[in-house]
Amino acid sequence: MTEIPDESNEALLLRTRRRHLVFGWWALFGFALLGLVLEGLHGFKVHWFLDSGYETRRLLWRLAHAHGVLLALVQLGFAASLPFAWPDDSRGLRLASTSLLLAGLLLPLGFFVGGIEIYGSDPGPGIVLSPVGGVCLLIAVGRTAWALAFCRASP
């Protein structure tokens, strides 16, 4: 439980909350827009998305859309739960926040970039971002769950 001397915990909470709200809403916008684009690709029967040879791309981009939207909502949920989880643990807060932001970015982007160039059923090299994002997500979720379970919350 180390305090950061040059910033009060309350200020940190506020800054973190705002960061996740901004990130969450913009990510929600971006990945919802991706969903619309994917629908458009379906609507116009774009062959490099719909043909059987592009099944992997279709799957990866759908995963990018789904993970992006879901993780955007998780950012909003995280922002809402901040006061309950970290009344006074700024180090844990920073770890969970950074990990969640990285997860919100790396996981869907990995799927998207991995779907740009595909090798049969194998994604392109960009897919390596996704497991890194996945690890970040686990850290963020685990750390938040732990904080919620074991911190004495005072909202």
């Binding site: 059987s52 040879g53 592009y54 099944e55 049969g120 059923s121």
Partner: peptide, 9 residues
Amino acid sequence: RACHPRHYD
């Protein structure tokens, strides 16, 4: 099929 969907198709 699992790895070569286009060729399979």
